[in-house]
Structure formats: C-alpha cells, structure tokens
Design a protein around this nucleic acid. Structure first.
Lengths: 104, 104
DNA sequence: TATACATTTCGTAATTTCGCGAAATATTAA
DNA sequence: TTAATATTTCGCGAAATTACGAAATGTATA
C-alpha cells in the first residue's frame, strides 16, 4: 500500500470516532447512555455537567455527527440514545485494536 | 457528585488517552505496535506514512506523553514499543465503557 | 576531531476545537 | 394568538491541533 493511501478507509473512520470520544463531556454522555436501555435529555445533562446549554448542544451534535448517538423528538424534549448499530461497530474496532496481540 | 467535579478523575484520564488516539497517523502507529512484540523506528514510519519527519516526531511525542508508547535508544536509532502497562489500562477502560450495558 | 546519520525541537501558518451569551427555532399550554 | 419551555444555531474570541522546513541535538564512525 502506498503511503498516500495508508490513512484512508477504516483507519480514517476509526480516527473520526475516536476523536468524537476524546472529550470528558462526551465520554460522560456516552458512559451514561451505554447502560442498557439508557437515554437522556439535554436538560438532565446540563444539570449534571459544568457546561452551558449551547456548549452541551455542540457536544451532542458532534456525537450525532460521528454516528454514536441519535436524538428522537419527544415533545417538549429530545430524547438521546446510543446508536446501537454504530456503537457495536465502534466496539468491534476498539476490540480489534486492543486484541491485535492476541490474533496470532 | 457536584457538576464541577464530574469530569475529573478517570473520565479526564480516559479523555486524554482517547484524544491521543484520535488521529489516523497515531492509530496507524498504535495498530502496528500492538502486534505481539512489535516495535518500530521513526525511519520506518516515515516511509510508510505520508507525513514529514518532524510531523511524525510530534505524533510520537504525543503518544509518549499520553503514556501509550515508549522510546528506547538503540543507536543510531530510537526503538519505539507500546507501553504495555498503560496499554492494558487503556484496554480496560475501553472494555468497561463498551461493556457498560452488560454489567447489570 | 570532523563527518554522517537519525531524530527532535523551533518557529510559523492554517485550521479546528471549545466555551460562552444572545438570538432563533420549535412545540405545548393558556 | 400569545406566552412559556426546551433546545439549537450564530457569532465571537481564546486556545489547541496539525503540518511543514530549517536548525539543533546526540551518537557512532572515519
């Protein structure tokens, strides 16, 4: 594989997901949502975390963009849950990385 | 726990590690080094990756700073390997996150 | 000692991230 | 329709990230 192409594909995809996870606020949200059948509302989070509403909204947006969570309208709230399908994909990528030394 | 303190401790630590992993070049390096007994030299990497020497050096520095790799002088080279102890710690953190929904 | 080689540090520029408050949007209730 | 509530988007500044080439560092060899 030529050097120019080494960083595309799965590696690029994993980097985007990892980057989206690389902030304490976003990890907090993911940790909370990863519990079985968990979900949350922006309003809950803003009371648990030391950030303003607009900042929190940005973090949620990033997690959504990375495909790790999804929001479902439940007026007057928006209910956030994990995107389980992508979460499993992410899990598989991390497991593969961390188990690299066991795949011989 | 007060909102101000929620993001400290383990969450903060995991965010730093995750951030260090969130770049395709650094993931490439980690993936390579995570194979059993693997190690590499900056010179090898610079030929496999589409980045300059100084850029690569910065990425190695970040991985070192995050504790994920370590460099050992082996003149005239520097041999890089995983820091296995911290790598296991990182593995444990990711496994805990991804298995949150199975810990009931 | 002088030279060669591998790697890092420095200085710089372009871009992205992070956080905030104000304003906008969307939906329900009066 | 108007007011109230939940959330997002906008606009901004400060700080961090990414990348590069040039210069510096450190070590072995001639």
């Amino acid at each position: 594989m030529k050097p120019e192409n080494v960083l595309y594909g799965e590696l690029q995809e994993m980097a985007e997901i990892t980057k989206a996870m690389g902030h304490p606020v976003r990890l907090y949200i993911l940790k909370k949502l990863s519990r079985l059948n968990a979900c949350c509302y922006s309003g809950d989070l803003v009371e648990e975390l030391p950030v303003g509403r607009s900042t929190l909204s940005q973090h949620l947006k990033e997690l959504k963009y990375a495909g790790l969570i999804q929001g479902e309208t439940e007026p007057p709230y928006i209910k956030y849950c994990l995107n389980r399908e992508n979460w499993e994909k992410a899990r598989a990528m991390f497991y593969a990385l961390f188990d690299e030394d066991r795949q011989l």
